[in-house]
């Protein structure tokens, strides 16, 4: 089976000229359909950079990266924009639109999908129900707690039924209980829809939810045998 994300000899640099600094070194990685992967490692190890490259948010400089069988090296801005439409993003900050209700925030994700009004309404209500917010649909983000906002963000990422979910520290702003709840909701919904999750986190409390854990340090992927010891 073709991996859903495939990375080959990926290098990435920040800065120009003498200030140029290499962030990622020869990354090779395959992620299969339906896998739930946690990407962990110390701050500054390049996790987020790798995530933004996979999400089509930054241009590839060296090496190959394909998602859903589309090569992102030399992709145009328009191709990257379209590639992003099959990815659900969940951010550390919820990044909800504060002038939209929970319902409308989720609805935004369907603005760029070809969908009937009835189908959209069904899906929005279902996904908000699944994250336990059926009674908060008409609330603005300012009226929701941190955990509730993050759950709206998850609903927004999932409502378009993406093939891949990329999440960056989704639990960072949450307490232990809501953090775990949020990831579990994400996991359940993803398993139902058969989508792949790549989750960047520092949070050791949720490592057990992953199918596979990838460890990054100083821009290198550390090989898996070492990780086993790390987790224990």
């Amino acid at each position: 089976m073709q991996p859903i994300i495939s990375v080959r000899h990926l290098n990435h640099y920040y800065g120009q000229g003498s200030l140029k600094k290499q962030i990622l070194f020869d990354i090779n990685l395959d992620i299969n359909r339906g896998e739930i992967i946690i990407l962990t490692g110390p701050s500054g190890s390049g996790k987020t950079t790798l995530l933004t490259l996979m999400g089509g948010l930054r241009s590839i400089q060296e090496g190959n990266l394909s998602i859903l069988e589309q090569e992102l090296l030399h992709a145009t801005k328009e191709q990257m924009t379209l590639a992003r439409r099959s990815i659900g993003f969940i951010f550390q900050a919820h990044n909800l639109l504060n002038f939209l209700t929970a319902y409308q925030n989720v609805e935004m994700a369907l603005e760029i999908q070809d969908i009937t009004a009835a189908e959209a309404d069904t899906r929005i209500r279902a996904v908000l129900g699944a994250v336990g917010l059926e009674h908060r649909m008409d609330y603005y983000p300012s009226g929701l707690s941190g955990g509730q906002k993050q759950r709206v963000a998850i609903a927004r990422a999932l409502v378009s039924q993406p093939k891949i979910i990329l999440a960056d520290e989704p639990t960072a702003a949450l307490d232990k209980k809501s953090g775990r709840d949020v990831v579990e909701i994400m996991e359940n919904l993803a398993r139902e829809q058969g989508c792949t999750i790549l989750l960047v986190t520092h949070d050791n409390r949720i490592l057990d939810l992953a199918d596979r854990i990838i460890y990054m340090e100083d821009g290198y992927l550390v090989n898996s045998s070492n990780i086993a010891t790390l987790v224990q």
Binding site: F99, Q104, D114, I115, T116, A118, E119
Partner: peptide, 19 residues
């Protein structure tokens, strides 16, 4: 029902929020 979803009137919603 095959009626396409109506787009959100984002500009107005945004203006309206900050009275």
């Amino acid at each position: 029902m095959t009626q396409k979803k109506k787009p959100l009137f984002l500009s107005w919603l945004q203006l309206r929020k900050e009275r």
